[in-house]
Computed example of a mutant assay.
Amino acid sequence: MSSHSVSATRRVLHNAPLLDAINGKTPTRTPVWFMRQAGRSLPEYKKVREGIGMLDSCFMPELLAEITLQPVRRHDVDAAILFSDIVVPLRAAGVAVEIVPGRGPVLDAPIRTREDVSNLPILDVDVPEVAAGIGIILKELNEQQALIGFAGAPFTLASYLVEGGPSKNHEKTKAMMHGDPETWHALMQRLVPTIVNFLKVQIDAGIDAMQLFDSWAGFLTERDYTEFVLPYSTEILQEIEQYAIPRIHFGVGTGEILGAMSRAGSEVMGVDWRVPLDKAAERIAAVSGPKVLQGNLDPALLFAGTDPLTREVARIKAEAATAIAAGNATGHIFNLGHGVLPNTVAEDITEAISIIHA
């Protein structure tokens, strides 16, 4: 296991809206960043990535830094999100995985048996390419702009591994969970150190906050989430607590399990667009006390034009203010309720961010 220590070179940020919102201060403006803001929608991203595989680009320090910084330069967001992918730690550990255009991560050999689990490599070394990329990014960001690192949560990684790729129904995943729970728990336990180590690589390199991204958790019942997933996400967030950086926890379609997810221990809870922020805050506060909310504009609204967008932004800000006034939330970071959609026009993203800041 590689040794990690709190980075002696961590930046001290001044008046950074994202960190001020998390720390209970009044930010100079509503902090905003968008999931998947790095790439996809930007012409400059398509240009630099031409002919380079998605996962390959995550291991090229200059390129990964350039892609991470592009939306910060263009859109004036308050945080950069590290350009990466949920399966990057698996690739770094030596798992044979490729991102197939139009489909997503696909594995050479899905995990189906206890023996498969035992043979799954664990990431126990540094990832120098990612650390070097972070070093380049931090040189360009100013002291108001935070850098968010991220990792996929164990359930989402486990689902990719068991299904062999993206799944609409997660039938193999749920079959293992219920039909062979011992193998399921062994797989989750095996994934925890890989995820923790990947986050520690980013923390040592100087990230200012981190997000644990559970893309598929919304496919689970609250009971299944609590039994089969929550202990492992909790363990990861507890491991990171010693580094004193803000922890964000997010999943898609998670309205029914927001309370359960909030028990994992993050300071910030991401909310997708299906649940109004004030209602989400009630569900979270009832279980684990008030937290900072992140969200939750429907990404499709970036196609709707200025007036509808302005109304939606105002509504979301009002819901956040209601939650804070009621004592159910301690702050608000503006975000989408999921990632930027691929065909979004870059100029519309810039406009949305200026409306949010206004």
Rank of each mutant, 00 (worst) to 15 (best):
D85T: 07
S57P: 05
T173G: 10
T156L: 01
K139I: 02
D126S: 14
P89H: 04
Q145G: 11
V125H: 15
E129Q: 13
A109S: 12
I148S: 07
L64C: 14
L138H: 09
A65T: 05
I67K: 10
P121K: 10
N142P: 10
L138E: 07
D108T: 12
E62R: 13
A109R: 10
D56P: 01
F155S: 04
I137D: 05
G133Q: 05
A151I: 08
L161C: 03
D126F: 15
P154M: 04
L147Y: 06
K139V: 06
P61Q: 08
Q144P: 05
G102T: 07
V100I: 13
R91V: 04
S159N: 12
P121M: 10
F150P: 03
D56N: 02
L157K: 04
L82W: 09
V95W: 00
F155Q: 05
A96Y: 01
G133R: 04
R114F: 12
I111Q: 02
G164R: 02
E115P: 01
P101G: 09
R112C: 02
A80M: 10
F83M: 11
L64V: 13
D56T: 07
S167N: 11
H170T: 07
E143T: 14
H178Q: 12
E163V: 00
T156I: 03
E62C: 06
R91M: 01
V106W: 00
P101F: 07
A96G: 02
A79S: 15
D126A: 14
L120M: 09
E163D: 03
C58P: 01
L63T: 08
Y160E: 00
A93W: 01
V72W: 07
I67D: 08
L120V: 09
I137G: 08
M177K: 02
I137C: 08
A158F: 02
G149F: 03
S159A: 15
P128A: 09
K168R: 15
A158E: 06
L157E: 06
A153L: 05
P154S: 12
G133D: 04
Y160M: 02
S118P: 06
A132S: 14
V77M: 14
D126G: 15
E143W: 09
P105S: 03
E129T: 12
M177I: 05
P121F: 06
A153E: 05
I122R: 14
I136A: 09
V72A: 06
I136V: 14
E98M: 01
V125S: 15
G164Y: 03
Q70P: 11
I67M: 13
I148D: 06
F150T: 04
D116Y: 03
H75A: 15
I122L: 13
N142I: 11
R91N: 00
D85E: 13
L161T: 01
I148A: 10
D76F: 14
